[in-house]
Design a protein around this nucleic acid. Structure first.
Lengths: 193, 193
DNA sequence: TTGATAACGGAACAAACGTTCCATAACCCC
DNA sequence: GGGGTTATGGAACGTTTGTTCCGTTATCAA
């Protein structure tokens, strides 16, 4: 039998998410990782392979932890407009770390990596598909229960909602007036009128 | 008198835009620049200072060239919905280079750099302000000319339109079904109904 | 034609990069 | 309490990074 690991893989992945989320892939160095994850260089490479692999696993972790909460909110929604507002609030709240905006790790990954890394692109696409489908289903359900006009197209409305959320996550990267954010939210909610 | 430059600064900046747009700041190396701009290392540093400075100037160039066309379209618009559709088309068309998506250089800059580089953030914010103001003015003008309902809020609608366009530029980073893009466009146009 | 100036090409720089290697330490089954 | 196995710490690897330096070349006013 062999020596046991001195760290929890899940914890280290969470820490890696924190770094990659804030700084992106290229600007996060191997030294940064060793320093902040509390794991020695050799153990890092033993456990996660190379830097790119660690990044991909961190991206999965982010999706599980952060986006998972959004999916849950959408799937258990009773009032769609309330839910959309809640998700906007959640996004604004999740964005700030030490007063520095991080945006959304998946959006950052899309703009930095997706064009040149098919694995990253696949994760981003998977996430998009999940969220759009969740919205589409929620809209259909609300229509079935007569809580929403039936002349609203579930698919394109879902796509537009997802799209607005992505836009918001980029906007947060540069500080915004609250009034502008509120305006975007208000107008996006009109999609569900 | 001194020897004359063997290149046009504007042309070199355009080439730098091409590189930074596609690969971002960190993934574009000094060697890449020397190789693709057709200018020797020393001339590059003589003319543009360091890499970051060249990036900032390239970002300005991008804004002047690419976003300038959008501003022109908005300011000379006669039919707002038509104009918005035209801009979406322009974006989709500008996005592809060698069958590789580049997104929008300003969006890429926002997600990669804005949180850690105040000068980049300032350029991004300036761009946002210009475009949102242009939309807001165009909306007010259309309302004044009775071409648009007056119960539409110019400011928040402008913010929402800008936001949707940003979202689209991220979406293009991963290949999209045309139907999804069309859906987003169709729903965004509803903001002007 | 000369001379002051600035652009040029290319070698060279130190620092940082991602990654590998190895001797040592810890673990559990037998 | 060995023995086989894996984790660990730290030194070291070869590359690539962004930048500088310098000898040479081109320019034009005097």
């Amino acid at each position: 039998m062999a020596r046991t690991k001195q760290f929890e893989v899940e914890n280290v992945l969470d820490a890696a998410v924190g770094l990659f989320w804030k700084k992106g892939y290229h600007a996060t160095s191997a030294n940064d990782l060793v320093e902040h994850l509390g794991v020695s260089r050799s153990s890092l490479y033993d456990t996660f392979g190379d830097k790119r692999n660690l990044y991909l696993q961190a991206l999965h972790q982010y999706r599980k932890r952060i986006i998972g909460r959004h999916l849950y909110l959408i799937e258990t929604a009773t009032d769609l407009k309330e839910t959309l507002e809640a998700i906007f609030s959640l996004i604004i709240e999740q964005d700030i770390d030490d007063f520095h905006p991080r945006g959304c790790m998946l959006v950052n990954a899309a703009t930095e990596m997706a064009a040149v890394d098919e694995d990253v692109a696949a994760i981003v696409r998977g996430n998009q598909w999940d969220l759009q489908k969740a919205w589409e289903m929620a809209i259909k359900k609300a229509q079935y229960q007569n809580e929403l006009r039936t002349d609203i197209n579930p698919k394109s409305t879902a796509a537009a909602i997802y799209n607005a959320i992505i836009g918001m996550r980029v906007a947060l990267k540069t500080e915004q007036e609250q009034a502008t954010l509120d305006g975007i939210i208000r107008q996006t909610l009109r999609l569900l009128d």
